[in-house]
Simulated assay, not measured.
Amino acid sequence: MPQLNPNPWFFTMLATWLTFSLIIQPKLLTFLSTNPPTSKAPTIPKTTPWTWPWT
């Protein structure tokens, strides 16, 4: 069964993994988040119950 032969695909997988982990990932981690998390407590909106006209 040829799909069990790792010879043609192992190098491709290894090269892709190394490229991602050594080149692409450090570049992605240097980007700043445009919406950084804040430490303030979330505000809870004041809601009023709906008044149904038939009740």
Rank of each mutant, 00 (worst) to 15 (best):
W9C: 12
T38M: 04
T34W: 01
P36I: 12
T30E: 10
Q25K: 12
L18P: 01
N35I: 08
I24E: 02
W17G: 03
W9E: 09
N35R: 05
T34E: 03
S33A: 08
T34Y: 01
L28S: 00
L29S: 14
Q3L: 15
Q25W: 08
N35D: 02
L28N: 02
I23A: 10
N5A: 15
N35G: 00
N7Y: 13
L18N: 09
P8W: 00
I24A: 11
S21P: 00
I24V: 14
N35A: 01
Q25S: 09
P36F: 07
N35C: 05
P37V: 06
K27Y: 13
P6A: 14
P6M: 08
S39Y: 08
A15H: 06
T30R: 09
F10N: 11
I23G: 03
L4D: 09
T30F: 05
L14N: 12
N7G: 14
L22N: 09
N5M: 12
L29T: 15
P37R: 10
S21Y: 06
T19R: 03
N5T: 15
W9V: 15
L28K: 10
L28H: 02
P37H: 07
L14Y: 11
P8E: 12
K27P: 04
N35T: 13
S39W: 04
P26W: 02
K27T: 05
P8Y: 10
P6H: 07
S39F: 11
P8V: 08
W17L: 14
F11K: 13
L22I: 12
M13Y: 08
T34D: 06
W17P: 00
S33G: 05
S33K: 02
T38W: 00
A15W: 00
L32V: 12
I23P: 02
K27R: 11
L4A: 04
S33R: 04
I24F: 05
T34N: 05
T16C: 05
L18A: 11
L32T: 11
P8R: 13
S39G: 10
P37Q: 08
L14W: 02
N7V: 14
L28V: 05
K27I: 15
W17V: 14
F11I: 13
P37L: 00
T38I: 10
I23F: 07
N35S: 07
T38S: 13
L18Q: 01
I24G: 01
F10G: 11
T34A: 10
P36M: 09
P37E: 03
I24Y: 03
F20L: 08
T16R: 06
P6R: 06
N5G: 06
K27L: 11
F31R: 09
T12V: 14
T38D: 08
F31L: 14
F20E: 04
L28R: 01
P8T: 09
L14C: 00
L32I: 11
I23D: 06
Q3P: 11
T16P: 02
L29M: 14
L14D: 15
L4F: 14
Q3E: 15
S21C: 03
L18K: 03
T38K: 07
S39V: 13
S21D: 07
N7A: 15
P6E: 11
T12Y: 06
W9A: 13
Q25G: 01
A15M: 01
F11M: 02
T30M: 05
Q3G: 13
P36S: 03
W9H: 08
T16D: 07
L14K: 14
T12F: 06
L4W: 12
L22C: 10
F11T: 08
P6N: 01
W9F: 12
T30N: 02
T34Q: 04
T16F: 06
